[in-house]
């Protein structure tokens, strides 16, 4: 679950921060190959894996059970806003 939430959240955050802070020139997008997307993708996967490992080590079985019981709400509450925030973001 941590990987499933950590990766999209990291990806969306990186993309939104880049859009807000970098003042990208849309014309330059054409001349780029796939470096920004690749970096964003691999960094977000790394973040998801690291979050999963940290929680797997640090969370007791009892706490993990409690988190899983609320899992559907956590998934919906995290994924829907971040997925909507990505709509029509270049």
């Amino acid at each position: 679950m941590a990987f499933g939430l950590g990766t999209p959240v990291s990806y969306a955050t990186q993309r939104l921060l880049a859009k807000l802070l970098l003042h990208e020139n849309p014309a330059m997008v054409v001349s780029q190959v796939h470096t920004p997307f690749t970096w964003r993708l691999f960094l977000s996967i790394l973040h998801g894996v690291l979050l999963g490992l940290i929680l797997a080590v640090g969370l007791s079985d009892t706490r993990a059970g409690r988190v899983l019981a609320a899992g559907p709400w956590i998934v919906a509450g995290v994924i829907i806003p971040f997925a909507v925030s990505m709509v029509m973001v270049p």
Binding site: P8, L41, I45, G48
Partner: peptide, 14 residues
């Protein structure tokens, strides 16, 4: 592309 990243990560996590 953005939503494909979401779908791939969520499917693997699921």
């Amino acid at each position: 592309e953005h939503l494909a990243v979401f779908a791939m990560a969520l499917a693997i996590a699921g």
